[in-house]
């Protein structure tokens, strides 16, 4: 039996999280292989902006880049956050298919 110390600092493990988020995006946005997914993290001190945000780019050759923002650090992004983004994106496209 192994003992997991609940008080131990949580590793942020950014590279692993990066790969997870990309996989969630590809799955939940139902992307084909022609669309590249890129994930980054930026900080911003503009009024009304969060301190750190995760930025997700969907890049398809010949089309404008689609950029989504999650108002939390990359390390804190969960699958449900990406699922919510994907749902909002689908609703927006349904409401304005030419937008």
């Amino acid at each position: 039996m192994t003992f997991n110390n609940p008080l131990a600092p949580k590793a942020r493990a950014i590279p692993q999280k990066l790969r997870e988020i990309k996989a969630w995006v590809r799955d939940l946005f139902e992307l084909d292989d022609d669309t590249a997914v890129t994930v980054s993290e930026l900080a911003c001190r503009d009024e009304g902006c969060p301190d750190i945000e995760t930025v997700i780019g969907l890049l398809t050759a010949g089309h404008p880049s689609e950029v989504h923002r999650l108002h939390k650090p990359l390390a804190d992004v969960e699958r449900d956050d990406v699922a919510a983004l994907a749902m909002v994106s689908r609703l927006a496209k349904a409401a304005d298919p030419h937008g």
């Binding site: 590249a36 997914v37 890129t38 930026l42 780019g57 880049s65 950029v67």
Partner: peptide, 14 residues
Amino acid sequence: GQDVLGWLALEDAL
């Protein structure tokens, strides 16, 4: 690789 191309494209988009 694709990650680098994506980050550069994202910089342009942002």
